[in-house]
């Protein structure tokens, strides 16, 4: 099996977010992996987007207040009847 055709930075950038979100498969996934391991500039871009994504994930955490927990417990009891 021959290795897939190499892609340029422009194409890599176009698919960067899908690659970041692990939504690619097949040839394109393979081409992206290959590009990221050989292109420093696109790799640091990917790293940046990854870190930002992680920051956003962390910023989105909250604890449900007791008042809500109690309401939910109440609803569960109502529906058990």
């Amino acid at each position: 099996m021959s290795s897939p055709e190499k892609i340029d930075c422009e194409k890599a950038l176009r698919h960067l977010l899908e690659y970041l979100d692990q939504e690619l498969e097949g040839t394109l996934q393979h081409q992206m992996e290959q590009h990221m391991s050989s292109c420093r500039s696109c790799f640091s871009r990917l790293e940046f987007e990854q870190t930002l994504k992680t920051h956003i994930r962390k910023s989105g955490t909250e604890q449900a207040p007791d008042s809500l927990r109690n309401r939910v417990v109440g609803l569960l009891k109502d529906f058990e009847k």
Binding site: G60, T61, E62, Q63, A64, P65, L68, R69, V72, L76
Partner: peptide
Amino acid sequence: LTDVLDRLYAAALR
């Protein structure tokens, strides 16, 4: 439901 409550609340808050 209990396990996902924090996440639901976080999303609802946003």
